[in-house]
């Protein structure tokens, strides 16, 4: 079992390490972590901090993808939750008080949860294709966020809010603890309860699962609620970081990066088997790549070219055809019968 895990995560881990090594060779200060005023600083720390919004969104996306779904609305949900939270803080008499910020954050998360529930309702209860169902909110969500902020970028200066994205706890960024906690919570719930295997069952075949007595609807609904809620938290971290609610820019293209992270981590978009650890590594790869591109002096506007190349390479590595080529190439040197016959056995049946 452990060997299988290792096998599944081998390529993601290898890619991440390779990226780090390349970066370190190119600029040795990349690996350096310095201590200032009892807080750690460095490029690696930045990566761990800055990846928080993407990480949360990607974790939720993993659950949704495991149920054979997809959540395109995460960026819009981020915009809405940021708008709700900052509008409340902006409108309150004491924007600096911790309790105000807490209430505002809870309201933002609450709204996101409802939005997630809405997606889940469309997919699980009305049986609408996930891509289409979440497209609705993807389109309409930003409109709602713009209405909440009256079409302006709401800027807020609030110490407790700033702490969410930029604060430090135990010498490490607070945002790091948020995503670590989320990842750990999901991993524990999925693996220590039966949620993991039941989610996979639903993702592989919803009807067969229903016949086996699995509460498919509840599980699918839960995945979208989790995705919405996590996106909401991500939206708050994002807003906290720029100290503003920007309904247009918040979470722009994040759904695509999140999906990329999930796929990079080794979870198939076809649903079923999924891996939380893989997604975490996938996000770290994307964030490290982002930092690399920035370092190379490429304009951030041009960085999508690199991501396009990464996507192509990753999907090619996963593609059965390339595996065949690889086998044909290495087959001449060493033959290892029995490893690849599994899939073919199905064909004969």
């Amino acid at each position: 079992m452990t060997r299988l895990m290792k096998h599944r995560l081998f390529w993601p881990v290898f890619s991440l390490l390779a990226l780090i090594v390349i970066n370190t060779i190119a600029r040795p200060q990349f690996i350096k972590i310095t201590m200032r005023d009892g807080e750690f600083y460095g490029a690696l720390i930045d990566i761990l901090r800055n990846c928080a919004p993407l990480m949360l969104v990607a974790l939720g996306m993993t659950l949704v993808i495991a149920t054979r779904g997809i959540d395109l609305s995460v960026g819009a949900v981020m915009a809405v939750s940021g708008a709700v939270t900052l509008t409340i803080i902006d409108g309150s008499s004491s924007p600096g008080s911790t309790s105000t910020v807490l209430v505002a954050i809870l309201a933002g998360i609450g709204v996101s949860l409802v939005l997630g529930l809405w997606n889940g309702f469309l997919v699980a209860v009305l049986d609408i294709q996930p891509i289409i169902a979440t497209l609705v909110l993807m389109l309409a969500g930003r409109g709602v966020a713009l209405l909440i902020t009256d079409g302006f970028i709401t800027t807020v200066n609030s110490e407790p809010l700033n702490f969410v994205a930029t604060g430090y706890l135990f010498a490490l960024p607070f945002a790091l603890f948020i995503w670590l906690a989320a990842a750990a919570a999901i991993a524990i719930v999925e693996r220590r309860t039966a949620l993991g295997v039941l989610t996979e069952a639903v993702g592989i075949n919803p009807e067969a699962s229903r016949l086996a007595g699995v509460r498919s609807r509840g599980i699918i609904l839960g995945a979208y609620v989790a995705s919405g809620t996590l996106a909401g938290i991500a939206g708050i971290i994002y807003s906290s970081n720029i100290r503003a609610a920007d309904a247009n820019a918040a979470g722009d293209l994040i759904e695509l990066y999140a999906i990329l992270a999930v796929v990079l981590g080794g979870t198939s978009l076809m649903g079923g088997k999924f891996t939380i650890a893989g997604t975490v590594i996938g996000v770290l790869i994307i964030q490290t790549l982002d930092s690399t591109i920035l370092f190379l002096g490429v304009s951030s506007a041009q960085s999508p070219v690199f991501f396009a190349i990464v996507v192509v390479i990753v999907v090619l590595i996963q593609s059965p055809r390339v595996h065949q080529w690889g086998r044909a190439l290495t087959g001449g040197f060493r033959t290892r019968p029995g490893t690849e016959v599994r899939n073919d056995a199905e064909v004969t049946a």
Binding site: I259, L269, Q302, P304, V305, F306, V315, L316, R321
Partner: peptide, 18 residues
């Protein structure tokens, strides 16, 4: 290469935008 259209065209999106 059996890539899902969503992902393949996503690569196209990134590439063209970049």
């Amino acid at each position: 290469f059996d890539v899902q259209p969503f992902i393949a065209s996503l690569a196209g999106l990134f590439l063209a935008r970049g």
